[in-house]
Amino acid sequence: MTQRSSTNQAPAPGAEPAGAEPDGAARGLWLPAARMLLVMTALTGVVYPLLVTGAAQVAFPDEASGSLIHRDGQVVGSRLIGQAFASPGLFWSRPSATGPAPYNAAASTGSNLGPSNPALVEAFGARAAALGAGAAGAPRVPVDLVTASGSGLDPHISPAAALWQVPRVAKVRALDEARLRALVAAHVEGRTFGVLGEPRVNVLLLNLALESLP
């Protein structure tokens, strides 16, 4: 780091050293700026993403391409992206705000409705009613089952939300509830390292396992 030698008298604050730039401080800067932008574009816009893509496809080909799930030679979904399920014999995902249909993985979005918005309050009521909440003796609905996620693609529900659905699924499939609860328990992903994030159940993986129950 070199420093210019100082003059005998310190210049006034903000004053320009005499004769440094005779006309226009930007003179002679356009060419280096354009070249710098070009170099940085090559480095950070071409080399960097290509390097990451190459390394990613070699080291983690499955994860880099969307963590797809294959069944019988067909892609049935991604481990990371939720799907909508409507059949009462399957576990249901959370509500989704994507359009035109829920869980549209080509156009992620949340509802962006404020907590006091009448439209949201109405939606809460409709979702709770659709789940049969409020019936006498019914357990309270876990909050994630009546709220839409931020991405509209949340692959998870809380373990509470999965267990809450067990009686319905068991009844439709004529299965033992205890057996289903065990299936849910086997699909609970705990906090990472016991600390990070929240416990959760991947709905698609749970339903795939449910479908292949003997």
């Binding site: 391409s65 892609v75 992206i81 799907q83 409507a86 249909a101 869980y103 993985a105």
Partner: peptide, 20 residues
């Protein structure tokens, strides 16, 4: 990528288009 989703959910119809 296109997924043929388990129950016809996901983005309408039987296909779920996953933007990558």
């Amino acid at each position: 990528a296109v997924a043929h989703s388990v129950e016809g959910g996901g983005g309408g119809g039987v296909e779920q288009v996953l933007a990558l």
